[in-house]
């Protein structure tokens, strides 16, 4: 089968792969790179479980074809903590009880991270609007919003 050569950075590590042209980034991350933090919950862009940050933008990796990310820099949940320390969002999600089953959690945290990276002090409204791209079936979102607010306070 014809494959394409793709080079990109994942969590600051350079990877070069030969992938089928129709392979999704989600498949590549999960199946080839063992980065299982990105989840498949719908496969059609409806839920955000597969969200990763590509060049600063949160994208649904189930809708992205791997050849499209050639040359890009990608952050997954596995690359969020630095030097053995959790990212403030990760800490806040734990402390605020924003995690229940956890299946939405990596997508939520990465969506929030992209927000905080471009807007250090988002209002509650902005947080709600931003995370409305992602479905959580467990929490009712209240504690997720509180966690993002807390992380924003901390990182200033």
């Amino acid at each position: 089968m014809k494959t394409m050569k793709v080079t990109f950075h994942v969590n600051d590590e350079k990877v070069t792969l030969h992938v089928r042209p129709y392979e999704t980034l989600l498949e590549t991350l999960r199946e080839r790179l063992d980065l299982i933090g990105a989840k498949e919950a719908c496969g059609v862009g409806a839920c955000g479980a597969c969200t990763v940050v590509v060049n600063g933008i949160p994208l649904r990796s189930c809708l992205v074809l791997t050849p499209e990310v050639d040359g890009a820099s990608i952050t997954t949940i596995e690359g969020l903590g630095k030097d053995g320390k959790l990212h403030p969002l990760q800490e806040a999600f734990m402390e605020k009880g924003a995690v229940q089953c956890g299946f939405c959690t990596s997508g939520m945290i990465l969506t929030a991270k992209a927000l905080l990276d471009r807007n250090k002090r988002p209002t509650k409204k902005e947080i709600i609007k931003t995370i409305s791209s992602n479905i959580c079936r467990c929490t009712g979102y209240k504690k997720i919003v509180e966690a993002v607010e807390k992380a924003a306070e901390k990182s200033v």
Partner: peptide
Amino acid sequence: RVVRSDSLAKVTGEACYTAD
């Protein structure tokens, strides 16, 4: 109001589900 014991693995993406 304790931090749930399972939450660390879930915020780091290490928690394993069946499809993983």
